[in-house]
Design a protein around this nucleic acid. Structure first.
Length: 570
RNA sequence: GGGCCUGUAGCUCAAUUGGUUAGAGCAGAGCGCUCAUAACGCUUUGGUUGGGGGUUCGAGUCCCUCCGGGCCUACCA
């Protein structure tokens, strides 16, 4: 038994997320967490909302609510959706928590004492109308290069030229449209990542087993141009963690907060501490996951995220951890994902294009989404959601191959032997051959899961389901029953056991299915099938069950067409 | 502009890191079965691995070049 700390990238607080956010961090981390728990490992699985920053303030203003109130509400909404998708977080925290505030201020103090913080006097755009400094991206105007009239202050979307907000012709606030912008001096703290670049690169070079996507992004940042740049870790905002040196004030930084990307990863630690608080445990309970001097030396730490998050998890956060000079746990494996597109374009929150999490759960159960998204997860390149592929995949895999297998076995048994595992007959070469095949396939499934290869794992799991149908077809108990009811009984007994084997093996991907099978067979919990033959002998003759209803109803053409229309966007 | 990823069957993806005849699923075709959600099983069609050149005994894999798709580029997060 080992110990695994698993974190899923923190979803941002400003609204309900679409399927893209699920596919690249929350679902794969959940599948992995469930698998590792099932294998008997000790798992701490953490997620939280990322609540600070300008977009949160703007979203709250748009909703007409104080930002703290808005975030509290959206946290509850996101927590409910996570539960709806079956995400098995040990704790779903908030980056605005007291725990995170203290930890973030603590790290800042440690970094300052290590000489890794420098103060920089900057000129920033200030909007009196909005009453705030504007991030580059929130300044719009005409591009000096191509004349595009909605260029942003960081880059022109039209000609891709990188800009400074002061380059823009007739600049205006993207928030209010105000044109009375002025340049003001302001002081900020920078994390001296450049001083740590060599150390970070040496560390990343030891990670030969990481996805190419992860290491190539990290190395690009390390080597691009003048190398790794220092990064501003404070902002002129109201909503955030006040800049302090631990418990002490930070002279000259009054009224400023830490940059959201500084405090968000620290919330992985904060949320683990929140978990301990919620369970009325002491600090040692969470420190044994995070402090290598306090019990975390044998922890394997896995992070899951979309590719946009990679620079912060490979460089900024490790710089924070390493730079602190304290024995905090560094990540061991970073699993990163490409993007999921929607019907030939991108998901778009602003255009209402694509499926959002609340809508997804309103039209279909979580297992449908979990299965399709994970069996098509964008591991090697961007992948695409289309309703046609979704319908075809779910109907074939879940309804026809798996659901119908459960259906045909339980209904045949009910009609010929009643709703209990039949006795009589004996297993023979067909059963032995299937046990041998499944032993090989389960080993392959485990190997893929152990390597965090979700797509291959899903394909192998599906092959395991298919093997049941092949067996049943060859054994043909409906034919055998006429001459030799005992032989049919043995086949059915074996097939009923297969159903419960499928329940435990499939649980990481489709937990609702597993729960329904267990309920139908009156099973409380299932051990991982270390020995397939033994696992297929658990249900003994006489074990009663209730024939489940159709487990996965098919998606009809009418439904698919309706949803295509409904989610096409404006 | 720079960097990275990617291009394999109609579609979605594999291919033990240079090693026999490039494999699966879906879709298509044929046959079988009738327990089951018109489900299942078996068989089968389908490839100049984007184009061209090179290295090598041997290239989907390495190099050059051209073409297509995507992502990142540090103040959105």
């Amino acid at each position: 038994m080992s110990r695994y700390l698993i974190t899923s990238a923190l979803p941002y607080i400003n609204g309900i997320k679409h399927l893209g956010n699920l596919v690249g961090s929350q679902l794969p981390s959940d599948v992995t967490a469930r698998y590792l728990r099932a294998r008997g490992h000790e798992v701490m699985y953490i997620c939280a909302t990322d609540e600070h920053g300008t977009p949160a303030e703007i979203a709250a203003a748009k909703a007409g609510k104080p930002v703290a109130e808005y975030c509290a509400e959206m946290w509850a909404v996101q927590k409910d959706l996570a539960e709806g998708f079956g995400l098995s977080f040990d704790h779903f925290g908030r980056s605005s928590s007291e725990r995170n505030r203290r930890l973030t201020q603590h790290f800042a103090k440690q970094l300052a004492e290590a000489g890794l913080i420098r103060e920089v006097e900057e000129k920033m755009i200030y909007s009196p109308t909005d009453g705030r400094f504007l991030p580059d991206r929130y300044v719009e105007g005409t591009c000096p290069n191509c004349g595009y009239d909605s260029a942003r202050g960081d880059q022109c979307e039209n000609c891709t030229k990188q800009l400074d907000p002061t380059d823009l012709i007739e600049p205006r606030s993207a928030i209010s449209g105000a044109t009375d912008l002025e340049v003001r001096e302001t002081k900020h703290l920078f994390l001296r990542q450049s001083a740590m670049a060599k150390q970070l690169e040496a560390w990343i070079d030891t990670k030969a087993d990481w996805p190419i996507l992860t290491t190539s992004i990290a190395k690009k940042w390390l080597r691009d141009g003048d190398g790794l740049q220092d990064r501003g870790i404070t902002r002129d905002l109201d909503w955030g963690i006040p800049v302090q040196k631990g418990d002490a004030p930070w002279p000259g930084m009054e009224g400023k907060v830490f940059y959201v990307w500084f405090d968000a990863p620290i919330e992985y630690i904060g949320a683990t501490a929140e978990w301990a608080d919620a369970h009325e445990l002491d600090d040692a309970a969470w420190q044994r996951w995070w402090r290598t001097d306090l019990g975390a030396e044998d922890v394997t730490y896995l992070q899951f995220m979309g590719k946009d998050n990679v620079p912060f998890h490979t460089l900024s956060f490790p710089a924070t951890i390493l730079g602190s000079g304290e024995p905090w746990k560094l990540v061991d494996y970073i699993k990163s994902f490409n993007y999921l597109n929607y019907q030939g374009g991108q998901f778009s929150t602003s255009k209402g294009r694509g499926v959002f999490q609340d809508q997804a759960l309103a039209i279909l159960p979580a297992d449908y989404w979990r299965w399709w998204l994970m069996s098509n997860v964008p591991e090697t390149s961007d992948s695409e959601f289309t309703w046609e592929m979704f319908q075809a995949g779910v109907n074939k895999d879940l309804a026809d191959v798996l659901g119908n297998f459960v259906s045909r076995v339980t209904k045949f048994c009910r009609s010929k032997f009643g709703e209990a595992v039949p006795e009589g007959g004996a297993y023979g070469p067909a059963e032995e051959a299937l046990i041998a095949e499944l032993t090989t396939r389960v080993a392959a499934y485990q190997a893929h899961m152990d390597a965090y290869e979700l797509r291959k794992s899903a394909a192998e799991l599906r092959a395991i389901w298919v093997a049941g149908n092949e067996y049943l077809q060859a054994a043909a108990p409906w034919a055998a029953f006429k001459q030799d009811p005992d032989a049919a009984a043995a086949t059915v007994r074996f097939a009923l056991n297969l159903i419960t084997l499928y329940a435990v093996l499939s649980e990481p991907f489709i937990p609702d299915f597993s729960a329904r099978v267990r309920a139908a067979f009156g099973i409380d919990s299932q051990p991982w099938p270390e020995d397939i033959g033994a696992a297929l002998a658990i249900l003994e003759p006489g074990h009663a069950f209730t024939t489940p209803d159709v487990l996965f109803a098919k998606i009809t053409d009418e439904q698919r067409e309706g949803w295509e229309q409904q989610f096409a966007g404006a």
